[in-house]
Write a protein that binds this DNA or RNA. Sequence first.
DNA 1: AATTGACTTAGACAATGTCTATTGTAGGAT
DNA 2: ATCCTACAATAGACATTGTCTAAGTCAATT
Lengths: 138, 138
Amino acid sequence: MSDLLERLRGRGWRMTAQRRVVAEVLEGDHVHLTADEVHARAVVRLPEISRATVYNTLGELVSLGEVLEVATDKRAKRYDPNAHRPHHHLVCARCGAIKDVHPGGNPLADLPDSERFGFTVSDVEVTYRGVCPTCAAA
Amino acid sequence: MSDLLERLRGRGWRMTAQRRVVAEVLEGDHVHLTADEVHARAVVRLPEISRATVYNTLGELVSLGEVLEVATDKRAKRYDPNAHRPHHHLVCARCGAIKDVHPGGNPLADLPDSERFGFTVSDVEVTYRGVCPTCAAA
DNA sequence: AATTGACTTAGACAATGTCTATTGTAGGAT
DNA sequence: ATCCTACAATAGACATTGTCTAAGTCAATT
Ligand SMILES: [Mn+2]
Ligand SMILES: [Mn+2]
Ligand SMILES: [Zn+2]
Ligand SMILES: [Zn+2]
């Protein structure tokens, strides 16, 4: 039984086969799948699971703070189970490969008050872009 | 005649009424419109312009480096004509308002070699999120 | 085992983006 | 000024991603 499922049970989640499978697909901290990729993998274990349930479950996991939504590419949202250690992303512009990175520095502190326009700034998302070794070789 | 149109003409662009209107809609450096917002504004001046042409023209402007594609919200891409002064974005999580910001520091330098996984890193996109003064008051 | 409200499902619908076949035209050639 | 043609625009089909609803199902409590 994964940590994630334990926490969800503790939060009063009704445990269903569908939710279990979605959580299992997200196991491992270095996964960044789209909703339909999650669905495709879930169907292997539970053929009758629907797209709607996958979308619903992912949305709930995001609301609970157990999974992050990231916009590394400009198409589908990606779902990141590594929600408990802050990090950013490095994306290959050619193949879309995504790596978790932990830069030094504090980008939030780098935004002076004069550049905040009265906003209450709470979060910063950093996406590095480049070309991965595999794509550079090819 | 705008700088943008001058540069495009210089690059051998065939000048059409449609391209002129799209460029005019993007005039001003602090605009961050979706493709369909560009289309809606273009239609006011040129009622018969098609969605396909707006998408095509925006895509060409991006290829030419005259306009940036930004993914500040997780829905439609936004098109940013402020391509010649590097900057980042501050987004209101409630209403979606977008501000250009120029943080201090150099996020690219903050990514050590040990966190680059052999990538050739060429670019970094920073999105600050918070609540704007208007939304905070309401 | 019965109950019940939360959960799942299929598929319609919506929003965004892409592609193709056809028609139109900008700009150079004559 | 007119013609020519490669490039551009159009309508609308299609694709992808995401949301919603009505009806059926089931997990957890009793
Ligand atoms: Mn991650
Ligand atoms: Mn901008
Ligand atoms: Zn790559
Ligand atoms: Zn706001």
